[in-house]
Amino acid sequence: MTATSPATPTTPAAPTTGTLPQDPPASRGARLHRWDVRWGPYALIAPFFLFFAVFTLLPLLYTGWASLHRIELTAPERAEWAGLHHYARLLRNPLFWNALRNTLVIGVLSTVPQLLTALALAHLLHSRLRAATFWRVALLTPYATSVAAATLVFSLLYGRDHGLVNWVLGALGAGPVDWQNGTWSARLAVSSIVVWRWTGYNALLYLAAMQAVPDELYESAELDGASRTRQFLHVTVPSLRPTILFTVVVSTIGALQLFGEPLLFGGAGGQKGGASHQFQTLGLFLYEQGWFTYHLGRACAVAWTMFLLLLLIATGHGLARRLLRKDG
């Protein structure tokens, strides 16, 4: 960036500030240069922060303000101060706790198998395979499929009366399952969509990290007589630790925001997440409060509660990382 500046006679690596006062003719250019070096980077990243301010920070703050007011969608221009009413009411609302519990349960049900499978798949792909590119592309296809398309197909598969899953179960002699109406069956079904969509993506992340592990480590492990499994457990996994932590954080954030899959899985009126809200996540609960019962203020309070939860998780992640570093 500085190399193109016409006033710079030297390489950008050598700071010229020290020579400035002794060189009056060049001083104007030099001052510009100094200004450029100092503020240029800020100017260049400013557009991002401008967008960040307009589309993230302002809405975030406005949502916080709105969460302290009684605002109804029927007349959104009327805002009446409500203090912490919405938050207090949330804590007393069994539907909120139900949504939080569902979010955590579906989060665990989808994240844990997802990451474990991804690790195993990455390990398989890491060994020399024929048509490696094909396998990698195939892994990524679910990720490239839209949530809507994937969920619609899965809802058909999990259909009660004419679904493929029940047909297979029937062939195996097991009774049909009403996937959507059962509490655990619905959560499992929603989780399975998430697992299907994200496993390949995580596997590729792991694969990239695996390929960065130096071969010498494996060679010396082999010399020590370690089996493939032991190599995986004692060489691969520890080297992948930062990547694993990253995927855990990203999946956790994704799990907390889970929305499209349960919404579409529920069909018409999907925002309720089933007749007894058995798969209503926090995202759906927020959507229902704001756009179906028209309590915008309360929906904003849900949004802020979710935000605070994420902050809590981020703090937990920071602590975990510090502990892990001490371990290493």
């Binding site: 009403d178 109406n181 059962g182 009126g269 309720k272 007749a275 007894s276 179906f292 019962t293």
Partner: peptide, 18 residues
């Protein structure tokens, strides 16, 4: 609509389907 849905989408399906 919300009140009606409490019966048709929550209460009654809970008895009928769950």
């Amino acid at each position: 609509q919300q009140i009606g849905a409490a019966f048709t989408d929550v209460g009654i399906p809970q008895v009928e389907q769950q």
